[in-house]
Simulated assay, not measured.
Amino acid sequence: MERKRSSSPETGSTSHGSSDTEYDVFLSFRGPDTRASFTDSLYHTLLDKCINVFIDKQGIDVGEEIGPEIFQAIDNSKICIPIFSKNYAFSSWCLRELEHMMQRRKTNELEVMPIFYDVEPSDVKLETRVYADALTLHKEKHGAEIVQRWVKALREVTGIKGWDTKNKGYVNSPNSIFPFLYVSFA
């Protein structure tokens, strides 16, 4: 499985942050939902601004265990951006990433900036069936204890001010919703 590490075209390496920070941004997303549209556009927009981005370029194969390199990339990032789409919660990988992000956020080691892509924060907060149905399926496969940790992470992330792209026309144009992001890396 190939992982994509992007670096500043001028230096070939990250010029931002502490020596422990390898990436400016880690993107977490459900590939089939957003990879070829919003996420790809966001990724290239960030690269164009010389922001060092970790993105899973190939996806994770069914049955494959989450690799330590994913957690390492989260740990070595300044900001994680989970992109919540309709099927995000059906991916145990996405939920594991989110749980890890939220744990790191509690220790002030990571900033999390959620994007609600074609879902409402209330969906992610489990106030509707959109994500609740996915978690019911996960409970059968992964057990109640693990799913409860994912529920906690989902509810916590909705307490963070994020971006809601639903009905806003941002489907392939992240530029208009992230103007401050570019300034924060200057």
Rank of each mutant, 00 (worst) to 15 (best):
E2G: 14
R3Y: 15
P9L: 14
E10D: 01
H16W: 01
S18Y: 06
S18N: 13
S19E: 13
T21K: 00
P32R: 14
T34E: 10
S37V: 06
T39A: 07
D48F: 00
D48R: 10
K49Q: 07
K49H: 00
F54I: 08
I55R: 02
D61K: 09
D61P: 08
G63R: 04
G63Q: 03
G67S: 15
P68V: 10
A73N: 09
D75R: 09
D75S: 02
N76I: 02
Y88D: 01
Y88T: 04
W93F: 05
R96K: 15
R96S: 10
M102N: 06
Q103P: 02
Q103H: 10
R104L: 04
R105S: 12
I115N: 02
I115W: 01
P121A: 04
S122K: 11
V124P: 00
K125C: 10
K125E: 15
R129E: 09
A132E: 06
A132V: 06
D133Q: 07
D133A: 04
A134W: 06
H138K: 03
E140H: 08
K141H: 04
K141A: 04
G143I: 09
A144P: 06
E145D: 13
Q148H: 11
W150E: 08
K152E: 04
K152H: 07
E156R: 00
V157Q: 09
G159R: 04
I160Y: 13
W163T: 11
T165C: 12
N175I: 04
S176Q: 14
V183T: 11
V183S: 12
V183L: 07
F185G: 03
